[in-house]
Design a protein around this nucleic acid. Structure first.
Lengths: 356, 356
DNA sequence: TATTTATTTGACAGCGTTGTCAGATTTGCT
DNA sequence: AGCAAATCTGACAACGCTGTCAAATAAATA
């Protein structure tokens, strides 16, 4: 008895109705290649034909299969966002900016957290890029400052843009914000409010931005002839706890408090404010506190934190834009000039700082 | 003059060295199909052959091309995470859990924010699923409670798991946390601390969890014979501002404050605390404040917030696990029992609440 | 009108895998 | 040893699309 195994009759019942380019071609009465041309907005298709195809595609709710497109063509329509950042809001903001820009060009985003401390990070990234042929990669701190990471991406031949890198300037396209200038202006703002005795909580020494921010602070203080005493400088590590510790040091002499404290990031500013509250020091009446980053927390503490808004979403958007516009520009005009974009920061004045 | 356009000589210089299954097959001296079998851990390959192939693959650093696999096979190794949530930490936690589980099975994650208010959300999702053949989708609030969304996913025939849904129980596999019980226990905790006069800030009425949390609160209060007066119940909308407003209402009569306030989420609890601070009401000395969710903010305000930790990452991990283990289990044993998982919450006692 | 040139179209061969199925080899039993 | 049943292996055809290139058509020129 021959048992004929019915070949799983492509269940036509399911209304999933995923139509292929073939269906469209048949309905429009043209070849699949022509449909392909229309779907990709390629030239050399008569307007009449184009319309016909578009109508057929619309009627069938046709959506080109991304995977097939990738395999056949040279693009994968996939951009990778590589990150390893402890701050959820930073990552989400980045992701949002990247996704926003990618959507406009029909690209999708693969989120790939990577442990920057892993010894085999280079290999991990190489493996990732070999598995999925990404059309571009966006590298964020601290990954964007690691030579092995850059090596891996370059070896794979994948275009990439770095966001706010600190090292290897010129090695790749990048987008950034002027940390130094921002810290400079924030300090000037404080100075303008009459503050002269300003304390500073330095950020994590491994982060490039920490140094730039400190430099901006010092520059402004120097120009104002108000160089801070070393007692007014505390070392933090970008965490709430370290901000608290820093405040402890800065507030050591209760009878001689600075009139303002500038923390290198919001998180530490929150620590400073918490310590102030614990010890009965009123903010901003006795001490003004300002931060840097404009994290969501700055709006949930009281008083709301005066800080600097990093245009994270915009930076990410710009990074994706560089990747995508470069991809489309192709060989026509290798726009070498568009290799670095700087985005403006914004001083966000809220209630944690006031004139002395 | 014939201008021969040199066909962009496939630059063999680039060491990108992306080896294909063919290279491995050649090196191992077997057919590509056998290599395929080994790479997919399929049976019916002699151990000797298997080893030989594995060695060849290792030597060439061979990584199967995901795209080609998807196109040819039935799996895409891609899981979609659909979200539309204003809280960055919630989304990141979710994403982390999903990615963690997916990595174990060689899957990747596509993050797809979707505007739940968009009128054509159903179409947008249908389009997404037609474009990329995802092996599974994870739906989070509020998307997971929208009929059009569920319809679209089901029509596309893509398996999905919902995280903390409020509506349509039983319509799909889901993972959740017992909001009611959590609120109940938090209230009991407050009661146990001697509080009897407890105010409550209700959450956004459109969110199912708001009602469950309120129910838990009421149940505990009722059991303790401490039914709150309606003056002690304020309506919020899950935002900091609404928490502040709620506090204003709850603190109306300065001479008659509740001894504790339970806000339906952290954000509103922060609003309550801010209002208390503004009006000179000391937390927790005069009023204890507790929240719900354990967002990052609960550790940056002072006093740190006593709250309920939602196991967001674990929920997401579990959701991905249900998707992936189901996919592998296949037809063998359609494990219908694994259609709902409940994960434990955790009361996080910090400084914003103390015994009366 | 006859040609040349530009424009539009389609046939066909991949892209790098997996599914199918038949052929080759090994194993188990009489 | 001889034969049936497992077990292993490989050819070959998809998967749905794009790139290449030649053929067909329309427009421009002589």
């Amino acid at each position: 008895m021959t048992q004929i195994k019915a070949p799983a009759a492509k269940e036509p019942s399911v209304s999933s109705a995923v139509s292929t380019i073939n269906d469209v071609a048949r309905l429009a009465g043209v070849s699949i290649k022509t449909v392909s041309r229309v779907m990709n907005d390629e030239p050399n298709v008569r307007e009449e034909t184009r319309t016909k195809v578009k109508e057929a595609a619309a009627r069938l709710h046709y959506r080109p299969n991304l995977l097939a497109r990738s395999l056949a063509g040279s693009r994968s329509f996939l951009i990778g966002l590589l990150y390893d950042n402890p701050s959820s809001s930073y990552v989400i903001d980045l992701q949002q900016g990247v996704i926003e820009r990618c959507r406009q060009s029909g690209y999708h985003v693969l989120s790939e957290p990577q442990d920057s401390l892993a010894p085999d990070i280079g290999r991990a990234i190489a493996s990732l890029l070999a598995t999925i042929r990404l059309d571009g990669v966006i590298l964020t701190p601290p990954l964007c400052d690691m030579a092995v990471v850059l090596d891996a991406v370059e070896a794979a031949g994948v275009p990439y843009v770095r966001v706010s890198p600190s090292l290897f300037p010129g090695r790749s396209a990048l987008v950034e914000m002027d940390d130094t200038q921002a810290a400079y202006e924030m300090t000037q703002f404080l100075l303008g409010q009459g503050h002269r005795d300003i304390g500073f909580v330095r950020g994590h020494p491994e982060h490039g931005s920490s140094h730039r921010r400190y430099d901006g602070f010092i520059k402004a203080m120097h120009e104002a002839g108000a160089e801070p005493h070393s007692r007014r400088i505390a070392q933090g590590f970008n965490s709430f706890a370290s901000g608290l510790e820093a405040a402890k040091a800065l507030f050591m002499d209760a009878g001689n408090l600075p009139t303002a404290i500038f923390a290198s990031n919001d998180e530490m500013a929150f620590g400073v404010m918490a310590y102030a509250q614990q010890t009965g020091v009123r903010v901003p009446d006795q001490v003004s506190v300002v931060g840097f980053d404009d994290t969501p927390g700055s709006m949930i503490i009281w008083p709301h934190l005066t800080t600097i808004r990093q245009p994270v979403t915009d930076l990410a958007y710009a990074a994706a834009d560089m990747l995508l516009s470069r991809a489309s520009a192709d060989e026509d005009a290798p726009n070498f000039s568009d290799t670095r974009r700087e985005l403006p920061f914004e001083l966000v004045m809220r209630e944690s700082a006031k004139a002395v």
